[in-house]
Simulated assay, not measured.
Amino acid sequence: MKKLEIRNKHLALRKSWTQEEWQMRHEQLHQQVLSYLKSLPKGTIIFSFQSIEGKREVDTQLIHETIAHSPYEFQLAFPRVEGEGKMSAYLVHEKTSWVRSAWGILEPDPITAKKIEPNEIQVVLVPLIGFDLQGHRVGFGKGFYDRFLSQCQPNCLKIGLSLEGPVQQIDDLHAFDIALDVIISSERLYCIH
């Protein structure tokens, strides 16, 4: 399937879910993510994302709260778009202020958060609309994450979060598309690499 077809199909599917089904999928995903994160070393820097309101994306708020209060001393970092098509990473803490971007996404205020380099991050939680069994993802088509992931260390663990299962294969990949290592869905874990 082509990316546009996958994007349209999955966005329509998300809109068709009842609130109860939406909630159930999030609860299942939350449990899968927390179970997986327990295997990470203490103090791991996890780069995550804030959901876009109104897009019915994975709601990461409960995951963030659990990570922030876990005994594993994980550190959370979030993206901030700075310049044309470039995301920067900022470590956050309980006193970090947030500002809403032009896309309606909450980003850390650089005055109250610490900027870090992508190569300092050990784990990236990646938003996606759809994915295939080879670890390729379909996002919103802007390329922010592929550019960011290309700056991370080769051994950085790239984890996609999904409320749906995979398609067999994405047919229109680009040379700059970066495959994920693991995809955690509400139903199961997919280890790709």
Rank of each mutant, 00 (worst) to 15 (best):
Trp98Ala: 06
Ile183Tyr: 00
Gln134Trp: 00
Lys95Phe: 09
Phe176Ser: 13
Lys115Ala: 05
Glu73Leu: 12
Ile6Ala: 08
Ile178Gly: 00
Asp59Ile: 14
Val126Gly: 07
Tyr90Leu: 06
Asp132Tyr: 04
Leu125Thr: 02
Leu173Tyr: 05
Asp146Cys: 02
Arg25Val: 07
Gly83Tyr: 08
Arg14Pro: 07
Lys55Ser: 15
Pro127Trp: 04
Arg100Trp: 13
Glu82Ser: 03
Pro71Ser: 09
Arg147Cys: 04
Glu53Val: 02
Arg147Phe: 00
Ser186Trp: 08
His30Cys: 05
Ser185Asn: 02
Glu187His: 13
Gly135Asn: 02
Leu13Trp: 12
Leu37Pro: 03
Leu91Asp: 01
Gln61Glu: 15
Glu84Ile: 08
Leu91Gly: 00
Val123Lys: 04
Arg188Val: 03
Ala77Lys: 01
Val58Cys: 14
Pro79Val: 07
Gln28Thr: 12
Leu37Thr: 13
Leu133Tyr: 12
Arg147Glu: 03
Glu5Leu: 15
Ile6Cys: 06
His136Gln: 09
Leu173Gly: 00
His174Ile: 10
Lys38Phe: 10
Gly139His: 06
Phe78Trp: 08
Phe47Glu: 07
Glu27Asp: 10
Leu40Val: 13
Leu163Asp: 03
Gly135Ala: 01
Ser162Thr: 04
Ile129Phe: 11
Ser88Cys: 13
Ser88Thr: 08
Ser39Asn: 15
Leu40Glu: 12
His93Cys: 10
Val58Ile: 13
Lys38Arg: 05
Glu117Leu: 05
Gln168Arg: 04
Ile63Ser: 07
Ile192Arg: 01
Leu125Ile: 08
Lys42Phe: 11
Ile105Gln: 05
Pro127Gln: 06
Gln50Glu: 13
Lys158Thr: 07
Ser150Asn: 05
Lys15Tyr: 02
Pro41Trp: 03
Ile121Val: 09
Ile121Tyr: 10
Val126Leu: 06
Phe47Met: 11
Tyr36Arg: 11
Ser186Asp: 04
His69Pro: 04
Ser97Tyr: 13
Arg147Ser: 09
His10Gly: 11
Pro79Asn: 03
